[in-house]
Design a protein around this nucleic acid. Structure first.
Lengths: 241, 241
DNA sequence: TCGTGTGAAAACATTCACAGCG
DNA sequence: CGCTGTGAATGTTTTCACACGA
């Protein structure tokens, strides 16, 4: 069946010669794979769990072990991985280091991603210093702000640049990911300008819905929304999962 | 067949079949009905959008307007609200202020939530100063840390307390929500102790899976995971939604 | 007319259960 | 054996399409 599986993980690779095109729904341009978003989301969780397992000397892990640790089912774990190929070993399980490699390749974190941060307030400064990013291959190499008071200051080893000079700051940097940590009122404008400057992925901390062309990918982190989910859960004593 | 929903009592005011709806909950207390998690998640987004609409003088909004602004479908918007009752007005739409009130009641943000923050590093300090929390009814009233160097310092108007005295710090505070902003290695222990001290909702910024009794509700904010989702999206030029 | 509320249909996601392999 | 990979079954969420109300 799912004939696109084997090679799909490297679908962005221009070479892939003999992959048979999807049967009925070839859209020619984007969206040739139909990997459920929920699967990709879980992939990150698997990776995190595997990375915490490996230093402990664990060499292989079964779908049921992984499932138990994450609170999911073993079948789910196997199905998730099966979307991308067959990297399990019957009777053994999955080899941690191999699986980590596969997932990182799929998520494209087997490479370094230079990142631009816009907004060096409290949150922005915390993000520059956040170790968790570099561990997964994301390196903030530019920190920008609009406030002349802030521009030029040192933040976590970076000199804050001027957002007004965004285009020249980004020139030749190969930056495609940006973090928006500015007040809501400025977020839409900042995001538009980032996209115009070649950024195609935006991590948005401003609590507004950004309106951008479909070519731009946005992930929102709205902390108040998360707390709302919590207060709902707490009041409606509902099992979480 | 969704005739077991708690609010059905309201809907059946007319043509009640000879079978009594098997119901217990009224709309004013927490509804015991199975509300999909995805619906609750969207509720927060509706609220945010409505709150940005109202100051502009918008009095009513239709499901299709709301849907367009959020990138969803009108049917979805109506279905989502229908889970909780009928607060739309045919031919008119939804009255913003009323809808805001309903959603806040459902999410339980029509009340103030005192919150304890554990971990006053870069991120923790940024969170104390974050205006977005208070706007939605969440007020960090205790900031704790384990580091004696930090305990006693002022952070955003709060004096950092000692995590070691967690229980006495929380005594009588009515705090049921906690934010964990400590290093991964300490997160599990901190979370357990919070739960033991009566916290039932935890916003966890540490990139590990917390293992807690089912009575505890955890929401993870893993920023590296979010960036991974972004790199995946950027590489597999996939429309976001 | 416009716009809600809602069954029914379609799409999507998860779990089951088992063949097959190291 | 133990464990993967995967059709088939089941469960859940979204979309469609239309009756009905203001």
């Amino acid at each position: 069946m799912n004939c696109e599986f084997g090679h799909t993980a490297i679908k962005f690779d221009r070479i892939t010669p003999d992959v048979q095109p999807p049967l009925e729904q070839s859209k020619t341009s984007g969206s040739r794979t139909r990997i459920p978003k929920s699967v990709v989301r879980r992939l990150s969780a698997y990776l995190r769990e595997l990375q915490s397992l490996e230093p402990q000397g664990t060499e292989t892990v079964s779908s049921s072990q992984l499932a138990r640790r994450l609170g999911w089912t073993d079948a789910q774990v196997r199905k998730d991985f099966a979307f991308f190929g067959q990297f399990g070993h019957p009777g053994v399980g999955y080899r941690c280091s191999q699986l980590i490699g596969e997932i990182r390749r799929i998520l494209a974190t087997d490479q370094q991603w230079p990142v631009v941060l816009v907004g060096c307030g409290n949150l922005g400064q915390a993000l520059v210093g956040y170790r968790g990013f570099a561990n997964q291959g994301f390196v903030i190499i530019k920190a920008l702000d609009i406030d002349p008071e802030v521009v030029g200051q040192q933040v976590g080893g970076l000199t804050v640049g001027s957002f007004e000079r965004l285009e020249s700051e980004l020139a030749g940097s190969g930056i495609h990911i940006g973090i928006v940590a500015v007040p809501s009122a400025s977020a839409q404008g900042v995001a538009e300008r980032l996209v115009a400057a070649g950024v195609t992925g935006i991590l948005n901390f401003a609590p507004i819905k950004l309106n951008l062309p479909p070519s731009a990918h946005v992930i929102d982190v709205d902390l108040a929304m998360e707390l709302e989910q919590l207060s709902y859960a707490v009041v409606n004593e509902r099992r979480n999962d």
